[in-house]
């Protein structure tokens, strides 16, 4: 491959990763606040449908994105209210919403299947887009892709550099202590569930208006939500590491298309399901990396240490355990 092809490849990776990054960052925020929004796979589809349909009806991509984001937030609010205020199992509610949001999307979106609708226009950034290699890879996309890039930075700054971000990290660690300090852990969690849901909704809108324009059954975004949930863990609940995971995944997807061309003897299905065994393997490594016996055994294999260090994220201590007043 010459340089030109490589830049096309990486540009495809960056573009393809955009919705995954948005969803992963959204879920990272939510889980950092101590809440698991398991409904991602369904809410991405529902917001993708809502975004496409509104964009189609209003001829405005921007309105589509807004509605998509709001729909994502709405599903997140349901998960949050059920778990924080009604003390129901987050997993149960999230799972029901996964199935329900998907079916709702198929049902309401049915008349809009396979229609030619509006999509986001490319927006190369002047000057920057002309830089060799980096130009086409990072600066020759449309604005949802730029948004995904900017969000990584903003979220990292917010979480680790601002007092509000400190409170976000704190509420996922020990909601009782947050309460004792005069803040309302329930409201904080609800707020961050909404923030996370907005990003997930944007991810859905990005799918139906940019990455895989249009609506249908299947849309093509199916399964992304589960990938995003796995990537949050892979990223150790850190936005930058989670984004790296999203790029790796996108790289695998793009390479799958190439590999299929090069190695026709390997059936297509292998490439389609490859991310999932990899997800399990990553989770296995994360959990093993916290076991001393395992660490002692791999001490003789120095090459494996950086991997383990990279994967040794600790989940927020109060993840999935909402605050209960005494």
């Amino acid at each position: 491959m010459n340089e030109f092809q490589v830049s096309i490849l990486f540009a495809a990776v960056v573009a393809g990763a955009a919705p995954i990054i948005l969803a992963t960052l959204g879920e990272t925020i939510t889980e950092r606040a101590g809440l698991i929004n398991l409904s991602l796979d369904g809410s991405i589809l529902l917001s993708a449908m809502a975004a496409f349909v509104t964009a189609y009806l209003t001829h405005s991509v921007a309105v589509g994105f807004i509605i998509g984001a709001l729909v994502g937030a709405l599903v997140a609010v349901l998960v949050a209210v059920f778990s924080i205020y009604l003390s129901q199992s987050q997993v149960a509610v999230g799972f029901v919403l996964t199935l329900m949001a998907r079916d709702l999307a198929y049902f309401i979106g049915n008349p809009y299947s396979r229609l030619q609708g509006p999509q986001v226009m490319p927006l190369p950034i002047p000057l920057l887009a002309d830089i060799p290699f980096f130009g086409p890879v990072f600066f020759n996309h449309n604005w949802p892709v730029y948004l995904s890039l900017v969000c990584i930075g903003i979220l990292t700054w917010y979480m680790y550099r601002t007092p509000m971000g400190l409170a976000l990290r704190a509420v996922g660690e020990h909601p009782k202590a947050v309460f004792a300090r005069g803040m309302d852990p329930k409201k904080l969690q609800l707020f961050y569930a909404v923030c996370g849901g907005l990003l997930v909704g944007l991810a859905g809108a990005t799918f139906s208006l940019s990455t895989k324009p249009g609506w249908g059954r299947p849309q093509g975004a199916e399964g992304t939500g589960w990938i995003a949930l796995a990537l949050v863990i892979f990223g150790g609940w850190h936005p930058v590491k989670a984004a790296i995971g999203a790029y790796l995944f996108s790289f695998l997807q793009v390479m799958g298309i190439y590999l299929q061309g090069w190695l026709p003897s390997i059936p297509t299905q292998v490439f389609q399901v490859a991310p999932f065994p990899l997800m399990i393997f990553t989770l296995l490594l994360i959990s093993l990396a916290q076991k001393e016996a395992f660490l002692a055994r791999v001490e003789k294999m120095p090459w494996i240490r950086p991997f383990i260090q990279m994967l040794s994220g600790t989940p927020p201590s109060a993840l999935g355990k909402p605050h209960e007043a005494e």
Binding site: F82, L99, M100, L104
Partner: peptide
Amino acid sequence: DSSLAGVIQGALVLATL
């Protein structure tokens, strides 16, 4: 679309919860 069934089933579980 036949997925209305799934919508009703999900709504039932959520409403019960």
